[in-house]
């Protein structure tokens, strides 16, 4: 995984431009976008890690998040463990689940080309969705926590204060991950494998272990996010589904393998969505923003390459 500073610079420029315009027009959309965008970035980070280092696009990404949400929900309903506290057990649960999925399936299609990998993870995503449907049906479920619906009033608009936790968590996870990659031996090994798996293997790095670690960690981060998200979303089997696509859009925006870019891309997308949502009568179209961004970015890159 290459951390490329140059690639993110144009994103910075776009973000800066949007922030100024939106800030003048509607400041609440700005804050809302920041909160939502941090969440997007937090969810996209694991996908980017798996894609950047293992070269696998995990279509079951969003479903792992859904599993995390339901795990947290079950802990709350049956043992009345607060979602924020349950982040730890859910993190461990998803690390183990990620390990199982890796050993049973992903490991066998490593380096086999994108076709079996995509179809395999697509199959896994369907299996997870349907398993959840069998146990919990498609009925939406909510977890109410008083602290999650608190809000603060600035000037003449109100914004949710709980969502600032997303921003905090996103920056914390990003910082920790960067520290880990730079300072620890395992982190350096991850770097090496991301750049050249064969070369890494020759110099004695256990590539298989690195892959396992990355897959488990990325799955675990989703568990962490799920616990924090739970009080603010209503969950149903397809809750996580769109996040696979959105996460990929962010990775494409940031450029493959760029960690810094993802946070920026997430916030940019979040603000763009919030702006569309704020336009009266056209709020329903905000779900398409990520697709527009994805197409625009891919087209722009294509032209550059050609």
């Amino acid at each position: 995984m290459k951390i490329n500073q140059k690639k993110t610079s144009w994103l910075f420029a776009i973000l800066f431009f949007i922030v100024i315009i939106v800030g003048i027009w509607d400041a609440s959309a700005l804050i809302y976008g920041l909160q939502r965008g941090s969440l997007y970035a937090l969810i996209a980070l694991p996908l980017a890690m798996v894609l950047g280092i293992m070269d696998i696009l995990n279509l079951a990404h969003g479903e792992l998040l859904t599993v995390g949400l339901y795990a947290s929900y079950v802990l709350f309903i049956n043992f009345s463990i607060d979602p924020l506290i349950s982040t730890l057990p859910v993190f461990i649960f998803l690390v183990i689940l990620g390990g199982i999925i890796y050993f049973l399936t992903i490991k066998k299609v490593l380096g086999e080309g994108h076709l079996p990998q995509l179809l395999l993870t697509f199959g896994i995503s369907i299996m997870l969705i349907e398993l959840i449907k069998i146990y919990w049906t498609t009925r939406p479920r909510n977890v109410y926590r008083a602290y999650a619906s608190s809000s603060i009033t600035i000037g003449n608009f109100r914004i949710g204060s709980y969502e600032f936790l997303y921003v905090f968590l996103a920056f914390a996870v990003f910082l920790l991950l960067k520290l880990f990659l730079k300072k620890t031996r395992l982190g350096q090994a991850v770097y090496a494998v991301g750049q050249n798996p064969r070369g890494a293997e020759i110099v004695g790095i256990n590539v298989d272990l690195v892959y396992l670690f990355i897959f488990c960690l990325s799955s675990g981060i989703l568990g962490l996010t799920a616990g924090v998200m739970l009080p603010r979303v209503s969950i149903f089997p397809l809750t996580g589904n769109p996040f696979s696509l959105i996460s990929f859009a962010l990775v494409a925006m940031a450029g493959m393998g760029s960690i810094n870019g993802i946070l920026l891309a997430g916030i940019t997308l979040g603000i763009a969505e919030a702006v569309i949502q704020a336009i009266p009568g056209y709020g329903g179209w905000s779900d398409l923003v990520f697709f527009g961004v994805l197409i625009a970015v891919i087209m722009a890159k294509n032209i550059q390459e050609a």
Partner: peptide
């Protein structure tokens, strides 16, 4: 036999075919 979630079997079939019977 299973009105809810019968698509699970299809996901499983895809995974099995990819892994063992490409």
């Amino acid at each position: 036999i299973m009105p809810y979630g019968h698509l699970f079997i299809y996901g499983l079939i895809i995974v099995i075919v990819i892994l063992f019977l490409p």
